[in-house]
Amino acid sequence: MAAVGQGPLAFVQGAGELAVFVGRTFAWMPRRPFRWAQLFRHLRDIGFGSLFIVVLTGFFTGLVFGFQTLQGFRRFGAEALVGPATLLTLSRELGPVLTGLMVAGRSGSGMATELGTMRVTEQIDALSTLAVEPMQYLVVPRVLAATLMMPLLTAIFTGFGFYGCYLIGVGREGIDPGVFFFETWQAADPDDFYEGWIKGAFFGAQISLISSWQGFRASGGARGVGEAATRAVVLSSVSILVGTYLLAELLDPLIHGYIWFDALPK
């Protein structure tokens, strides 16, 4: 927010800096040695670190979305369609976006804090003097881990969300479970899930790159590290909300395009 708040010049400057950082990350990515131990550490940190909160928010999102959708659908007597409606929204939009926001808050701030502390205590400089490239050792494994982990967390979010919706629809509203699943089965399309997972992967990359960048440019002690963490979360969140629209526009014709072709007159 601070980068956005300080006017257009600071924004352009920040965007340029971030672009350079992203470029350097990808330049170091294919170089050897590959940091397997680091990758597994971050896969575990991001995965387990965010698992509980993703399950919890997924479940309640499904509950409330199912609840409100029912209020609407009841007006058309379409209660049984709550399953597919919820699943579509969860898998395509709410799943990746809310999971992304949770991971930004949990792991993004963690990355910015850890790397920011390493920066201000000169640990990143110490790595350089030991002829270990910090981008390669610290940033590349975080970006890969977040990019790989986000689709999985998105799927978990969607799964628990759908379970919440099932509890509302079948448990509370009394929809016949057979009907509930039949309607969902009828309308569900694997492409909806692909869209969510692809978005998740993008958001994972965005969060980890922005947060690492903020950590690396931290300065000035504990306070600077705190500011970096705040900025990491805010900028990651904004980038997710902007990104999800852009990705929807981009992915829709790519993934769901065939629906349009199928609809063409033969």
Binding site: T121, E122, Q123, L127, S128, T129, L130
Partner: peptide, 17 residues
């Protein structure tokens, strides 16, 4: 590559915590 020639002790240690 050049860093291989060097070692450095930082003022505050800069140990990996």
């Amino acid at each position: 590559r050049v860093r291989g020639k060097f070692g450095m002790v930082f003022q505050n240690g800069a140990l990996f915590d």
